[in-house]
Nucleic acid binder design. Structure first.
Lengths: 154, 154
DNA sequence: AACCATAGTTGTATAATACAACTAAAAAAC
DNA sequence: GTTTTTTAGTTGTATTATACAACTATGGTT
């Protein structure tokens, strides 16, 4: 139990620099990073990746558009759909935050005794898989249960 | 890098049942649990444990008081200070959510191959320590740096 | 008595998130 | 070709968590 609360605290600790770098939140960076990995990206694809409500995707992208880090265009195949691309400024910001994050991750790795690094990374991956599976199972398994109300699993 | 984003996603997955159980969020449960572990608890102690701003502690506790799960009293030693206690109803809700959580944690454990359980738990603990250390170091180490703005480490 | 520090609250604000309802476009059914 | 259904994304509304600044009231120090 304390692991989950520690997990939650650790992630908040991480996100506490909510204005993470270049006035970009961690979630916003995830979006920049996802869009950077493609010439352009469908909104539909983005909210699949983010695993949030479509409305949330719209809200998360809006400040990045407002700040001219991302530009939104009509998709060729469907006028309802939109595609996203990084602007020149968006690429610059993405690079800067990326460097920031790299050094942060490096300091995490350096804080782990070298002999334990491999098993730590394996351990956490196994745990995260289990956590996600358990969450998915809980939603499905408890469907209709009054005890728990669940959103769709990611 | 993807570990941190997976971590963030996993914790959100966990907290996605934000109305976790009995209409209590995960953070609210943490508070109930912390208060339950003591006959009564100082607010000052609570916000040390939560590692958030004092104002945030006030905000987090308010809905629990409003719903009569927690009661706030003046501390004996200092009229400015407040102490918190669970009500009878608060204890009932705590027990219910606790059971919920226990079965959730059990399903996480069951989702991990038995042979890997010990190393997974060790791995994640090592990682979380490193993450928290890295966060603290980053705030301290970068003090004054324009690149990163930091809140106080936890 | 005056000044400083502390405990907690309140005003203000941001970020993330979701549900319901909506518009407009595309796909399916007839 | 028309009608109905589905889909992509937006908007209204709302909650939760969080922090900074400023505040009041109380306690501690000089």
């Amino acid at each position: 139990m304390s692991i989950i609360s520690d997990l939650s605290k650790a992630v908040r600790c991480c996100r506490q620099d909510e204005v993470f770098c270049e006035d970009v939140t961690f979630t916003q960076f995830i979006i920049l990073d996802t869009v950077a990995g493609n010439e352009s990206l469908d909104m539909a694809r983005l909210h699949e990746i983010l695993a949030v409500d479509k409305s949330t995707t719209t809200r998360l992208v809006a400040p990045l558009i407002r700040r001219n880090l991302i530009v939104r265009e009509k998709a060729g195949h469907d006028s309802r759909a939109a595609t996203l691309r990084l602007t020149v400024e968006g690429k610059e910001v993405w690079e800067k935050v990326w460097q920031c994050l790299i050094s942060f991750i490096r300091s995490i790795q350096e804080a782990i005794p070298e002999k334990k690094r491999k098993s730590a990374l394996e351990g956490i991956q196994v745990f995260l898989c289990a956590l996600q599976n358990a969450s998915a199972m809980r939603c499905a398994g408890n469907a209709g249960s009054e005890c728990c109300r669940c959103a769709d699993p990611a």
